[in-house]
Design a binder for these strands. Structure first.
Length: 302
DNA sequence: AATGAGGGCAACCGCTCCATT
DNA sequence: GAATGGAGCGGTTGCCCTCAT
């Protein structure tokens, strides 16, 4: 190969390299990463540039430590998605998969281990990830403050994309993807709209964890747009859940629209809804479909 | 003050998937 | 249908920093 004659740099990025990449991305936007590396005058492989951009240089990144609420969201999403860091990251605006992965492997894993050993769980002999999963789903990891999960989640999405949200028109809102967390909810649900956003108002439950949001109003915001854009591309098949939840979202939004900006409905399961959309449910190996069937039981049409 | 252990984070590696030829 | 290359993802490594001794 010709390219091997040129020595690629490895290791930490210098500020100069960062500048070069940043300037190039700002002026030219995303393209073929190996071209970017070459054209930006970087002695890096495209892969390395991509990683640096996604994990560090991207302007929409949220820096700093994870909040306790973010922690809980991560724990919860991990219990649903497993080690699908990119999918978890897609639901935590401003956070990268690498960041979440590191956070999990260092902080959370350790904490869960502690919890597990304290509770002298019989799962301790299992492989770490699977035992953690069980622990979480089984309740060893406290859901005591589950309301924070949703509240924080909403807060995070609202914060990170408040400007874009305000700029979104209704059709954009309708086209947006509804996060998985919403799809995991069931219970009494009331949907309304104000001038800038659509809000849910209701009572939710996630896997037995009562979120107790009866008095809270929160906005539906899309999956982190920037993530979708930056990661390119895979938005459409980011995962099938997004499509599914998007369908749900659209249905709800349509109802909103048709009911003069307010919807009082949805008291029983989404089950029929799922079945109706069954043909589109080509769920990946992690059996999201079953998951959803178990956790979603209200029907928007009743 | 020196030093060793542990933790956190950035980056690399290897694999898979997908599009193109 | 096979080969190839690019992109993305998850696992792993290695460096640096902090803190306890």
């Amino acid at each position: 190969m010709i390219t091997t004659t040129m020595k690629m740099r490895k290791g930490l990025w210098s500020p100069e390299e960062d500048d070069k990449l940043m300037n190039y991305m700002v002026t030219n936007g995303q393209g073929c990463w190996s071209d970017i590396a070459r054209n930006a005058g970087l002695q890096r492989c495209g892969k390395s540039c991509r990683l640096r951009w996604i994990n560090y240089l991207r302007p929409d990144l949220k820096r700093g430590a994870f909040s306790p609420q973010e922690e809980e969201v991560i724990i919860h999403l991990h219990s649903l998605l497993g080690n699908r860091w990119s999918q978890i990251a897609a639901r935590l605006p401003g956070r990268t998969d690498n960041e979440i992965k590191n956070f999990w492997n260092s902080t959370v894993k350790k904490r869960l281990k502690k919890t597990t050993s304290n509770s002298s769980s019989p799962n301790t002999s299992h492989d770490s990830s699977s035992s953690e999963h069980k622990d979480i789903m089984g309740g060893s990891v406290s859901m005591h403050d589950s309301s924070n999960i949703m509240a924080m989640y909403m807060d995070a999405t609202r914060r990170s994309s408040s400007s874009s949200l305000q700029a979104m028109n209704i059709s954009q809102v309708m086209e947006s993807n509804m996060p998985i967390l919403h799809a995991s909810c069931y219970g009494t649900l009331e949907v309304g709209m104000d001038s800038n956003a659509i809000s849910y108002h209701g009572c939710y439950e996630i896997f037995g964890g009562n979120l107790g949001l009866e008095d809270e109003i929160f906005n539906i915001t899309p999956l982190d747009n920037s993530t979708s854009i930056d990661h390119g591309i895979k938005t459409e098949n980011l995962d099938q859940n997004s499509i599914v939840t998007n369908n749900m979202n659209n249905m709800i939004m349509n109802q909103c629209y048709n009911n003069n900006n307010t919807l009082h409905a949805i008291n029983e399961g989404f089950e029929n809804c799922w079945e109706g959309a069954g043909d589109e449910l080509k769920v990946e190996e992690w059996d999201f479909e079953e998951l959803m069937r178990e956790s979603c039981t209200f029907d928007p049409y009743t």
